[in-house]
Design a protein around this nucleic acid. Structure first.
Lengths: 221, 221
DNA sequence: TAGATTGTTAATCGATTAACAATC
DNA sequence: TAGATTGTTAATCGATTAACAATC
């Protein structure tokens, strides 16, 4: 499971493979060929085989891939078989949504604690987890072996909290704040910039409209 | 503003440029060169100039780019200057987070309505918007000129609702359900698969650990 | 004018697709 | 064995970076 040398593009696609294999598993499908998976996922069979072979040969000539086996192997590659302790900083709607969701999905992600600065939220219990103030953040991280922090706080507060997280030895930040965080090389930051996603959507809607308008114009000529 | 021929990679980067220009604007910076922006954003100056020149020449030799002008132009390209009416289907924590956020950001996105199937939520008012049942979804879309629907419902219900949205003439779906939607070519789907984001995070944390373990091993030899 | 910096062409790099021998 | 399908190499395609003439 050598982590290096795997391109960003491949890693981006892995979770999607995992999801489709999970669906196949639920449907009771035992084996699948790259060709059939390619039709379902709307990617080329070549790409599927290339991607998987970054991590080893999981298939068998003339047979294809065993769904359960491949599913488990990708799970291992993604590290979903290991336990990840996480905390959520910012316990508003987004923080609570993530708490529900991370526990729900269960695959190795455990919400150990939730934090907020709002006194109205502190003390409230979400999915069995009590919301705490951020004063003892560092102690909590160390005592509970927390690896991942989800950051769902305003961008103005994010850099300061990120620094505290890093100092406390956090391994990764799941960043929902609308700002790029500056952290050491050995701390992973995974950004979810919803505003940027919405802007891309906007762009695509507009360019679709322009395209249609163009077509009409051409037809009328 | 020709929508076609622009590569996906460029579109992905546009909102980030917009965000950095917004920050510069707040800092009171009037002009910026691709070189200086490159240092801030940690991308190559070449890439910045190439990206921008997909849409026209916004700069001036020997001077650089006027921050306010470039900010506005990218806003236009992204379609943020136009008004987008949106609805949110699924009014749980995630739906409410989006409602707060979309109104908050204001840049042309207006939450016209919120929907849910849960009777406990129906009738509740979030940021001045009342949560409705999904019975009259289609009428609401037509009457309110709704272009975008955010889908924050379980994956089991998503395909059915997506079909209804498409039939009602929606232009785009902001999809938070953990499933790929099957819609006609002229309907835009922008996916936010949080589970996949979390898996990528997990992968990167694990491969970082493996990398470190490898380094220690090598040092000890 | 001289210096700075763009816009744009050319070179490089990496990712995707095609092809096919290996093999179950 | 014959057919199917992988694993893998080679070919193509596209995106990024470098270079530099144009020009403010």
């Amino acid at each position: 499971m050598e982590g290096k040398g795997i391109s960003r593009a491949v890693i981006e696609r892995l979770p999607r493979y995992y999801r489709y294999l999970g669906e196949l598993l639920e449907e009771g499908v035992e084996r699948i060929s790259s060709g059939e998976l390619s039709r379902r996922m709307r990617v080329t069979a070549s790409q599927i085989r290339q991607d998987l072979n970054n991590f080893g040969g999981f298939g068998q000539q003339g047979y294809g891939y065993n769904v359960k086996y491949l599913y488990d192997e990708i799970g291992k590659i993604l590290g979903i078989d290991r336990q990840h302790n996480l905390i959520i900083i910012g316990s508003g709607n987004l923080g609570q949504a993530i708490a529900n969701y991370a526990n729900f999905e269960r695959r190795g992600f455990i919400v150990k604690g939730m934090f907020d600065v709002n006194p109205k939220l502190i003390g409230k219990v979400v999915r069995g987890v009590e919301i705490m103030g951020v004063e003892n953040l560092e102690d909590f991280i160390v005592e509970n072996d927390v690896q991942i922090a989800a950051l769902t706080i305003p961008k103005t507060k994010a850099p300061e909290i990120a620094d505290r997280l890093v100092a406390a030895g956090i391994k990764a930040i799941w960043n929902f704040a609308h700002i790029d965080l500056d952290v050491p090389d050995d701390v992973v930051v995974e950004n979810v910039h919803l505003s940027e996603s919405l802007m891309r959507l906007s762009y695509r809607v507009c360019s679709m409209q322009d395209q249609k308008a163009g077509e009409i114009k051409r037809t009328q000529k």
